[in-house]
Every structure is written in C-alpha cells, then in structure tokens.
C-alpha cells in the first residue's frame, strides 16, 4: 500500500554533496528509525521524502508512484518537527484542525475530528489554550495530533522528543509506539537516542556521511554489525576496540586479515588474578541495576569498559584481571568491514 522507496537519492547544497546515493525500501506499516552522527544527512533525507527539499537526482516513490516532483501537500505525508512548529496565534484546536480548515471542510466536521484526535492524545481539556500555555510534552502531543488528523500514509518524525526531559521522553516514546500499533502507518523516525532507536524500530538505518552503512533489525545491528562504524555507533556504552595482539585477546584465534577486534562491555568478565589480562579500575559508574567499570590495561591506549552487576563492590584503584567471552569477539579487516563471525 504505502510502500516507500528511495532510489539512488542524491542531494547537493551548491557544490557540497551531502546525500551520496541512497537506496532504501520501507514496507507499508513499517517503523524505521534513522540514526547516525550529527550532520550525516538524516534530516535532509527526511525533508526530501517530505518534499520540503528538492532532490538533486534520484527518485522518491510512494506506493509505486513517483512523487519526486510532487508538492509536499500532495504526498499524503505528515511531519512532526523537533521544535513542534505550532502556530503561536492558534489555539490547540485550531492547530490540530489547521490542515482540515485549509480544505474548507465544514466547521462541525472539523470540530468533531479535532475532538476525536484530542481524546486519543488526552488533549481534550486543553483545546482552547494557546501553545505558549502548554508544557513541552503537551506541545509535542498537539504536533502529533495535527499530523494524524489527516490520516497520512507516512509519518516523518525529526527528533521529536529531544526537547523533553527524561521521564516525559519515556512516556511519549510509549505513546508513539502505541500510536504506531493503532494506526499501522509507515513511520520514519530520526533520533540520537539509542533506547528510542532500539525500542521503537522494526528496522534501524545507520547513516554516515550521506550514505547508509547498514539496515537491519535492532538486534541484528547490535549482534552482527556490518562494519566497525556500525559496531561503534550502536550500543551504549560503546563497544571496546582492541588491537589483535593485546593481552586481553591472548589465546584467541585471529581470523585472516583481521586488523582490529571489538567486544561489548557485557561480554567481558572479571576473573581471579592470574587467569586473565591484568589492569586497574580507573572509574566506576553505578546506574543501579548495573555498574560500568572503566579499566586501564597496560598495553592499550584507551580504557576498556566492562559491565558488572549493580551490586558489584569494585572500587576505583583496585587491581583486577579480566577475560573476553571468546565467541563474542568481532573482528574487522583493514577497511573496517566485519569478518565472518567466528562463533561456533
């Protein structure tokens, strides 16, 4: 139905090419999350899909139809902005009904549909307020209300929750997940928040410098990153990268061509002194359910991060020994590509 296809999409601002050929197909009803470092082109891609930015070359297809040159309003797409983009001079009701009123629908019908949308978003009592008089979370709900009222085929979210505090973020995240389940619409969601990406996405698209590094389900990206960039980008705290000859990897079979090894913090374990690589605890971060220890090893330039249970009593300054779970080590070649998994 509303399958979205990007075909060799490119975008240049002047002589600077910022999107360097994207191919991506998003299935109807799928929830796709774009992640990537700042400035890698996520917003630009989103805006090309919306039609707010001209495409330099390539095509955007929606439900089999080429919409590359279609005006934004003709695409049946809704967009929710990071800044909410609410009209300060319109009440909540008028903001939500803005698109409908442009089409000159009867007043009563608009009012009825606005009320219905407001109910599902718990905005009922706020309909007469102005945006200034709302909290951040309420404003974002109004922005979402404005986007769903027209029954768009595709929803675009550009970092919608990044202006909210942590608790509200969790709450709104759940609300968006619920919304997706109820509407079954195609959704594309840009975020810098790992938890949002992992929990909301059917598939995550990892961007880097205007290209797609990898597309896949959250767990697939986490467990089988295609390259060093994805391995380092997905997961917080980040994967530890080690030189193949270091003490921590002693005794492991190094695949041919491997230049670097990666291991996640939860795949390292403390062992009795003498049973593994020795080091000292530099810093402890206690999060409650778990604790992260940053260890200094004599033969590594950077500290190594290790996950421990929440009640672990390790203190900074103690000498420890640690080992890597052998079948969890990932190997990368000189170009940063992941080598075939060595797991049995």
């Amino acid at each position: 139905m509303a399958e979205l296809t990007l075909d060799r999409l490119r975008k240049s601002f002047g002589s600077q090419e910022v999107i360097k050929g994207l191919d991506l197909t998003i299935a109807d009803g799928e929830f796709v999350v774009f992640v990537g470092p700042s400035g890698c082109g996520k917003s630009t891609t989103l805006r090309m899909i919306a039609g707010l930015e001209d495409v330099t070359s390539g095509a955007v297809r929606l439900a089999g139809q080429d919409v590359t040159r279609t005006r934004p309003a003709g695409r049946g797409i809704a967009m929710v902005f990071q800044s909410y983009a609410l009209f300060p001079h319109l009440s909540v009701a008028d903001n939500i009904g803005f698109g409908l009123s442009l089409q000159r629908l009867p007043r009563a019908e608009i009012a009825a549909r606005v009320r219905a949308v407001a109910e599902t978003l718990q905005l009922g009592p706020l309909l007469e307020r102005f945006p200034r008089e709302l909290s951040g979370g309420q404003r974002q709900r109004v922005a979402i209300g404005r986007s769903i009222i027209r029954d768009p085929r595709v929803f675009l979210f550009d970092e919608p929750l990044s202006n909210l505090d942590a608790a509200l973020r969790v709450q709104m995240r759940l609300e968006i997940a619920r919304l997706h389940r109820r509407l079954r619409a195609t959704m594309i969601y840009v975020t810098h928040d790992q938890v949002e990406a992992m929990t909301l996405a059917d598939r995550i698209v990892v961007f880097n410098e205007g290209r797609i590094e990898q597309v896949g389900s959250p767990m697939a990206l986490y467990e089988r990153p295609a390259n060093r960039f994805v391995a380092g980008f997905i997961g917080a705290p980040a994967m530890n990268f080690l030189a193949p000859g270091c003490a921590l990897l002693a005794g492991l079979a190094v695949p041919a061509g491997a230049r670097e090894a990666g291991i996640r913090p939860e795949h390292l374990a403390l062992v009795a002194p003498g049973d593994g690589a020795g080091g000292s605890v530099e810093l402890i971060e206690r999060l409650g359910p778990e604790t992260f220890a940053h260890l200094r090893l004599p033969d590594l330039p950077d500290t190594v991060t290790l996950r421990l249970p929440g009640d672990s009593g390790v203190e900074p300054g103690t000498a420890v020994a640690l080992r890597a779970l052998p079948d969890r080590v990932q190997w990368f070649d000189a170009a940063g590509r992941a080598l075939a998994a060595t797991r049995g």
């Binding site: 296809t5 075909d7 070359s57 390539g58």
Partner: peptide
C-alpha cells in the same frame, strides 16, 4: 524500477 529517474527540467 531500479532505473534512475532523470530529473525533469
């Protein structure tokens, strides 16, 4: 489908 669409003027 994979044919890249030339941009109309």
């Amino acid at each position: 489908m994979a044919e890249s669409t030339p941009m109309p003027a």
